[in-house]
Design a binder for these strands. Structure first.
Length: 502
RNA sequence: GGCGCCGUCGCCAAGUGGUAAGGCAGAGGUCUGCAAAACCUCCAUCCCCGGUUCAAAUCCGGGCGGCGCCUCCA
């Protein structure tokens, strides 16, 4: 059973959805005023792994929402500056986010609500009115505020001791004035030139916590199973979401809170002023692949700070290559794709969605070089893989299980101690692993678009084959070097020559 | 000032009481037209000091070092 660390209780807890095997999960999405950076994507990749674990490893149905925050100070300022409407300004950033998400192999959530959608604004208005009715609000100069003192539970997520706050730790003093500095605005009176809606609470616009509560409650109704986001959102964003939601509905908002630690870049916090707030496009421009970035993001635990470095990208690239190369060797054993590209056809996930099936029984067969059978190696790897992920998504340990299998399989292939059925069984297991990790399939999608057309690669391989048969090694090497310069590597094996992207 | 986290091989990174996973890099060997890929072998006693225990990287205390939140931020 999956165990997740719950920020609310500060403990690891067994997880099961509350109702009908469907996980209701909400993750705070991007504010769409600029292109999301790799730190943002660390969170979204980790949330994606959580989603895939719940779906493929645990066999739950998913109902997940990741929102787009398209109305708050930065989007409004950006739109004003660009002389565009809010929608005109935010549309391209949403498109960019979707593009980068796809590049990183993030599965599309079932719901991607947008704060300014009419349904959502309506829900926000209703939420404010409900809070008003329950005595949690007060109005001042056209704005509606949440009164923290009205909710004894306030602060249970962040556990901040306000009595001991440092003088220097500023408490926001809003220009409208509040009864308590910690009170926050629910519905903000718009200034001239700012977008304004009247959703029931008077003309204005939502405060920056309201949307998430409103959208989550609208989409999921009752208590969410999981609410996720970056660690910086614990306070005040998530704390205030709880206040709004529970103040209005008088029932628990979310059962489990999952927070992803921050990404650092070369030992420094990311910031625009340092110029280290890299985007996915920057990684690609440096000659790296999105699949390697995803791998890097999975190589450490989501609750630990991860230090992004270019050396780390290189290492991730090589590590991932080891897995992919092993799969290519297996395809040779399986037959049908031998001599083709590593990205060959015929790969495809062979496990159906749902919890991975137990390893094929009776796959016993001959021993590997290490004395274990392939069937036993698969069995062990699947067990270790599952145990690792069930332990609060220990992706680093899960990867180790994959590499253990890779080593056993490579040894068996060298010793010619693996038959077609066993190779197929390994490939099925690997494809089950990748349903959760999502990194091999991503690499293959990249390889399907090599820098040199596949037809040309295959023609050159044929040419080189002829040259080699005539022992014209100079010509053969020339072809390989030329392809290498264009980003394609050739490898000669017993079964022929195969190519892969650099 | 309050709350909290972290310090494991050159690099990345698991392991939270039972005697140090995995990856990258490196050294030697096998295979090989070459080049790769692959395999085999080698490569750490866990920041320091004290304590608890039959047993500690893992628990407790004290240092040293790094970081986060308390303010917009994934």
């Amino acid at each position: 059973m999956l165990r997740l660390y719950n920020t609310l209780t500060r403990r690891e807890e067994p997880f099961a959805p509350l109702r009908d095997n469907t996980v209701r999960m909400y993750a705070c999405g991007p504010t769409v005023y600029a292109r999301a950076h790799i730190g943002n994507f660390r969170t979204f990749v980790c949330v994606d792994v959580l989603r895939r674990t719940l779906k493929y490893l645990c066999g739950h149905a998913m109902h997940e929402a990741v929102n787009y925050t398209d109305v708050e100070d930065k989007t409004i300022a950006g739109a004003l500056k660009a002389g565009q409407s809010l929608r005109e300004f935010t549309d391209p950033w949403i498109a960019a986010f979707r593009e980068d998400s796809a590049q990183l192999g993030i599965e599309a959530p079932e719901e991607t609500p947008r704060a300014t959608d009419l349904d959502n604004l309506t829900a926000m208005g209703e939420l404010v009115l409900a809070l008003e009715k329950n005595g949690h609000t007060y109005r001042r100069d056209g704005s509606v505020y949440f009164r923290i003192a009205s909710l004894p539970d306030y602060g249970k997520l962040a556990r901040l001791d306000h009595a001991g706050m440092k003088d220097g730790a500023r408490v926001d003093v809003d220009e409208y004035g509040k009864d308590d500095p910690r009170d926050f605005v629910l519905w903000k009176a718009s200034k001239p030139g700012e977008p304004s809606w009247d959703a029931g609470a008077g003309p204005g616009r939502p405060g920056w916590h309201l949307e998430c509560s409103a959208m989550a409650l609208r989409l999921f109704g009752g208590p969410l199973d999981i609410h996720a986001g970056g660690i910086d959102l614990i306070f005040p964003h998530h704390e205030n979401e709880i206040a709004q939601s529970e103040g209005a509905t008088k029932q628990p908002f979310a059962r489990v809170w999952v927070h992803v630690e921050h990404l650092f870049v070369e030992n420094e916090k990311m910031s625009k002023s340092l110029g280290n707030d890299f985007r996915v496009a920057d990684i690609i421009a440096r000659g790296h692949r999105a699949s390697a970035l995803r791998y890097l993001l999975l190589s450490s635990h989501y609750r630990k700070q991860l230090n992004f470095t270019w050396a780390g990208m290189d290492q991730a690239e090589e590590s991932l290559r080891r897995i992919v190369d092993c799969l290519a060797r297996l395809e040779d054993v399986s037959g049908g794709t031998g001599g083709r590209g590593i990205n060959g056809r015929g790969g495809g996930p062979s496990s159906p969605p749902g919890p991975p099936e137990p390893p094929p029984s009776g796959v016993g067969g001959p021993s590997t070089a290490r004395g274990a059978t392939i069937g036993a190696s698969i069995d062990t790897a699947q067990r270790m893989f599952r145990e690792a992920l069930e332990c609060d998504l220990n992706t680093a340990a899960a990867l180790a299980a994959v590499f253990d299998l890779v080593r056993d399989v490579n040894a068996a292939i060298d010793a010619k101690q693996i038959d077609r059925d066993e190779a197929d069984a390994v490939r099925a297991a690997m494809s089950g692993f990748d349903q959760v990790l999502g990194v091999v399939s991503l690499r293959r999608a990249e390889d399907a678009r090599p820098p040199v057309p596949v037809d040309e690669i295959e023609r050159l391989i044929e040419e080189r084959k002829t040259a080699r048969q005539q022992r014209d090694f100079a010509a053969a090497d020339r072809i390989r070097h030329e392809l290498a310069d264009r980003g394609i590597l050739l490898e000669d094996n017993a079964g022929g020559t195969r190519w892969k992207r650099k």
